[in-house]
């Protein structure tokens, strides 16, 4: 848990305070909402630095207007490229022509000034070109995001599931297979299921998109990341993942994304690793949701047979439908649980 930090009045923070890691997660979560997606990978920051260096070196003589309105995303790339080339050629050609036949050491010295100027112009054109590219990419990214997910808040309607009924089944599955690596639960809510899994000796990590729930999970001693399963599983710094439990995030995903996710997990889980899917039956999925939430849910609910098919096609084996504590029959239940292991 967190080390003690002093308040302005010198009082120490409580022992059950959220860890520094969670606060870092929150900051990174917000940064991911920026058009560039991350503070550590940032188009615009590079341009800003380039602009600053450029203006520092060629403050007046470059003639680089660097006006934001100069670059419009409507400009065609071909037109811009032509202009860049034309500017460079226009700048250099007279100088080369004039100097070609009469160059001397003295001339070389005096020629450095116009050369600097030409370099400044060239840099200016390059900055313009890159800026155009960045603006275009940002614009396209925004368009794609709007098409894929016109109402990004729709996932918020999908509350984490109550998984008490499935705790024994999931714990038994993991205990029997002993996957090698941390057990990750995507959409872990306040972390009850992971708490039980941690209790039987597994290293666990939660992923939760809602920070208030993540905060409560950390207070219960669960390490939680705020974001998506893809961001965690694709993070090269992350250690081996032995098992992934998916719950609650499925209804907010288009089927194509879901298939891609299962394929990704098949590839990234350690050998003999487990994938456990906890999902709602299609006819019960939107029960209790209001009309808006039902309409905005971008995903289409899938039957357990379909999940079994997707897992099988993605390379999982030993695919099993687990029974919950109160299960009566497959078709009477609101939820189901499908699990499988990687073949490798």
């Amino acid at each position: 848990m967190s080390k003690n930090r002093s308040t302005p009045d010198g009082a120490d923070r409580r022992n059950d305070d959220p860890s520094e890691a969670l606060l870092k997660e929150l900051r990174e979560t917000f940064r991911r909402l920026s058009p560039q997606g991350s503070a550590s990978w940032n188009f615009s920051e590079a341009f800003t630095r380039l602009d600053r260096e450029f203006l520092k070196r060629w403050p007046k003589e470059s003639g680089h207007a660097a006006s934001p309105e100069e670059v419009r995303v409507e400009d065609s790339a071909r037109g811009l490229q032509s202009r860049v080339v034309a500017r460079v050629q226009d700048r250099l050609r007279p100088w080369v022509d004039e100097r070609a036949g009469e160059i001397s050491s003295k001339e070389v010295s005096s020629a450095l000034d116009p050369l600097n100027e030409a370099v400044g112009e060239t840099l200016g054109a390059a900055v313009d070109a890159l800026r155009f590219l960045a603006a275009r990419v940002e614009s396209l990214e925004h368009d794609v995001e709007r098409i894929r997910n016109p109402f990004p808040i729709s996932e918020a309607f999908d509350e984490p599931y109550d998984l008490k009924e499935w705790t024994s089944a999931v714990c038994n599955w993991l205990r029997d297979r002993r996957p090698d690596g941390v057990v990750v639960h995507a959409r872990c809510g306040t972390g009850e299921l992971l708490g039980e899994i941690q209790g039987i000796g597994f290293a666990v990590e939660g992923i939760e998109s809602r920070a208030d729930l993540a905060w409560k999970a950390t207070e219960a001693g669960i390490r939680v990341r705020i974001g998506t399963i893809e961001e965690v599983i694709c993070d090269e710094r992350h250690g081996p993942v032995g098992a992934v439990i998916l719950s609650g995030t499925l209804a907010s995903r288009p089927v194509g994304d879901l298939v891609a996710l299962v394929e990704l997990l098949s590839d990234r889980l350690t050998a003999g690793g487990s994938l456990v899917v906890l999902a709602r039956m299609p006819d019960s999925l939107t029960r209790g949701w209001d009309a808006v939430a039902s309409d905005l849910a971008p995903g289409r609910a899938l039957h357990p047979e379909t999940f079994e098919f997707i897992l099988h096609r993605s390379g999982f084996s030993g695919i099993t439908r687990l029974a919950g504590d109160n299960s009566i029959g497959d078709h009477d239940a609101d939820m189901f649980c499908v699990a499988g292991v990687t073949k490798r």
Binding site: R31, S34, P35, Q36, A39, N42, F43, S44, E45, F47, T48, D51, R52, L55, A66, P68, V71, R131, A134, A135, E138
Partner: peptide
């Protein structure tokens, strides 16, 4: 400009 850079390149440039 650093504050604007991740959010709007044109505004960041404007600040520079």
């Amino acid at each position: 400009a650093e504050y604007f850079a991740p959010w709007d390149n044109a505004l960041a440039l404007h600040q520079v």
